[in-house]
Design a protein around this nucleic acid. Structure first.
Ligand SMILES: NC(=O)c1ccc[n+]([C@@H]2O[C@H](COP(=O)([O-])OP(=O)(O)OC[C@H]3O[C@@H](n4cnc5c(N)ncnc54)[C@H](O)[C@@H]3O)[C@@H](O)[C@H]2O)c1
Ligand SMILES: NC(=O)c1ccc[n+]([C@@H]2O[C@H](COP(=O)([O-])OP(=O)(O)OC[C@H]3O[C@@H](n4cnc5c(N)ncnc54)[C@H](O)[C@@H]3O)[C@@H](O)[C@H]2O)c1
Lengths: 219, 219
DNA sequence: CGTTAGTCGTTAAAGATTTCACATACTTCA
DNA sequence: TGAAGTATGTGAAATCTTTAACGACTAACG
């Protein structure tokens, strides 16, 4: 439908949801305009980077003025497909899975966990955070056309479940298990490895001491 | 004490805990040697990148042989300070905080959540995953010399708590709230923004379709 | 209406990271 | 012992990302 604009750098793409969220905040606060500098202070991304990021989408701002919040927000809403909701399945209703179900990413968000699966009989049929929990044996049958899955099963089960998800036609998996799963090249997996994030932070603290001069940077 | 080797690239540093974990797995399985190619298949990082990463620490392998698992493991154990345990505090014993406390990053890990804080009177004095929950009012008093904090409070409370943590002498914060907190430049904050990770995955699925040819890459 | 202060979009430079490709050196096996 | 096979470590190239700098333009105000 749309002409696919020349592809945005990945680093930029990862920042878009962040921009969108803060734009939403500003809009809620009734702000009419914003500069790259202000946004920079809020999201902790260099203002030149923000301008560069925005510029991949064309000229969204006005020189000497900044950006119109309403306009920018509606532009990103379209770009990030915030109008259509992406349906998500969650596999593994344990500690982490339960937390996600209770949260359900509902604020300013275009994603919704619609169904959950677990192997533990006790959980089947219950609702967690308003989402029904189905038996993992019914995965293929009940997944329907859901294309994104959050994986929060024990790591020993991760590859097996991933294989089944792939067979059932999934496109993307957000993998919270420490297992590095293998999938066909047409399926996208993002790993969020919380233990590693914590270890990495500790490593940076020991080996990359920050001094008073240099500014800390994120992620 | 040690001569600080020329600083390792940040991208490399973030992969070290991953390597360490898989080396541990191999060791447990009784494997004696491993090649960069094998490791690559396991952790889904290009083998040249692995060799390059390792090479920053000197010549750890042997040409024509590969790497000795035991040696490599013990080397990384030292490098990653796996022998000393870093004590961690968790602030906000809600959905996410409870999940982390129950998990407590105990496997192959050099970190331990030792104390938790919450504002909700009902939780105070209880134990979650073997960790005592203290009142947030006692933060400064009970934090002691803990230098790392996990932040899982509502985003509205994030900046206030961060300020208190900084005053109490914290060095690093793993921030799970959507708030981008401000801290002095000598404190390191890593943001893990789960809602954004999910949105970014959805964005990539729509705008960066993977075909049969190209390999998906991580995170 | 002209001046001042402010801000974008972009060119170019710098910096960081990944990947290629191969000389070198070790292992294995006959 | 020698030949064949294997896999490292790294120089050089390619790619990706961030940052600096500034010309062009706007808004606001006296
Ligand atoms: N909880 C944390 O803080 C944390 C931190 C880092 C990583 N992780 C990882 O996240 C994953 C989940 O952690 P958790 O603490 O929620 O574990 P958990 O044991 O509490 O939950 C796992 C859930 O998966 C279900 N399950 C097991 N096998 C299944 C299968 N074959 N199909 C469907 N469901 C199945 C179990 O019944 C359980 O409800 C693990 O891989 C863990 O390593 C968790
Ligand atoms: N749960 C998720 O899946 C999820 C996903 C993405 C982001 N987050 C973010 O993580 C954070 C925590 O989420 P959650 O679902 O666990 O929320 P939650 O409401 O379940 O837990 C927050 C906890 O913090 C405590 N608290 C409130 N104010 C406090 C204060 N001033 N000092 C100390 N404790 C205080 C509350 O008593 C509660 O126990 C939030 O910022 C949320 O946006 C959560």
């Amino acid at each position: 439908m749309d002409i696919e604009q020349t592809k945005i750098p990945q680093a930029t793409a990862k920042r878009l949801p962040l921009y969108y969220r803060f734009l939403n905040n500003l809009h809620t606060q009734g702000k009419l305009r914003v500069s790259s500098k202000e946004l920079s202070d809020a999201v902790k991304v260099d203002s030149a980077t923000i301008r560069r990021d925005f510029s991949y989408f064309g000229a969204l701002g006005k020189k000497g003025y900044g950006y119109n919040v309403e306009y920018l927000l509606s532009f990103f809403r379209k770009t990030l497909d915030q109008d259509e909701t992406t349906r998500v399945a969650l596999i593994g209703v344990g500690n982490l899975g339960t937390a996600f179900l209770n949260y359900n990413f509902t604020k300013n968000n275009n994603t919704k966990i619609e169904i959950a699966f677990d192997a533990n009989e006790e959980r089947i049929g219950s609702e967690v955070g308003g989402v029904g929990v189905e038996h993992i044996d019914d995965l293929e049958e009940k997944l329907g056309d859901i294309s994104v899955a959050i994986l929060t099963v024990p790591s020993s089960a991760a590859q097996g479940i991933a294989d089944r998800l792939v067979k059932a036609g999934i496109s993307g998996i957000l993998n919270f298990t420490p297992a590095r799963i293998s999938v066909p090249s047409n399926v996208r997996v993002h790993h969020i490895d919380l233990a590693i994030e914590l270890q990495a932070l500790v490593y940076f603290l020991k080996h990359y001491p920050l001094n008073e001069e240099e500014m800390e940077e994120d992620q």
